[in-house]
């Protein structure tokens, strides 16, 4: 940029306060109890001091998740802020854990905390699932019926992650996922 000197005594405030969650599957406890809040932050500097000292997603154990949600929204479908919503789903191939996973997850976080989406009010949070069969990243929005907003977020996501136009990503409505009985069509939107 230009020759702007930074005043490091002032932290840069974020539009929203965000909470990082960690999920680890302990069968002796309920699913909800296995979701643990790690920390919340509302400045750029506090975000980095958290991010710089936690493990990157690619080094987590299989079966675990990180979730980053606006403070007050729990990373689950049942939360009032999520129950009418859905998620843009990015399914990664196994080999992408080494190539793309950490870059995608960080770029998604930067989109969230930097309010990169025009319709960022619609964004609830994002989840990364570390799984043997292939990792997944979801960007959760609060109202699946707001098609224009959902599509804007999906398009911006693809652009920011440099996902090729040959690859299509889909948006799943949480309610459909919950009610899923067979292999009926999965995605309500795709970009």
């Amino acid at each position: 940029n230009e020759n702007v000197s930074m005043d490091y005594s002032i932290k840069h405030p974020l539009q929203n306060c965000w909470t990082l969650w960690y999920f680890e599957n302990d069968r002796n406890q309920s699913w909800e109890k296995n979701q643990r809040e790690i920390a919340s932050f509302d400045t750029v500097e506090d975000f980095w001091s958290l991010y710089n000292h936690i493990k990157p997603a690619s080094e987590l154990k299989q079966g675990t998740d990180y979730s980053l949600f606006k403070k007050g929204i729990r990373p689950m479908w049942e939360d009032a802020a999520n129950k009418k919503g859905g998620r843009w789903l990015i399914s990664l191939e196994k080999k992408q854990r080494t190539n793309d996973l950490d870059r995608y997850w960080l770029d998604i976080i930067l989109c969230l905390i930097g309010e990169a989406f025009e319709n960022s009010d619609e964004v609830c949070g994002a989840v990364v699932n570390i799984r043997y069969k292939g990792d997944k990243i979801g960007v959760w929005t609060g109202d699946a019926s707001k098609g224009a907003a959902v599509l804007e977020i999906g398009r911006k996501l693809k652009e920011r992650l440099h996902i090729s136009n040959r690859i299509t990503i889909g948006y799943e409505v949480h309610k459909d996922t919950m009610d899923k009985t067979g292999s009926s069509s999965k995605y309500s939107y795709s970009v």
Partner: peptide, 18 residues
């Protein structure tokens, strides 16, 4: 009010600020 928006590079540049 105005939304506080940060560019990706701006955020990355603050990663190792003191």
């Amino acid at each position: 009010g105005t939304k506080i928006v940060y560019e990706r590079n701006f955020l990355l540049n603050l990663r190792n600020s003191p």
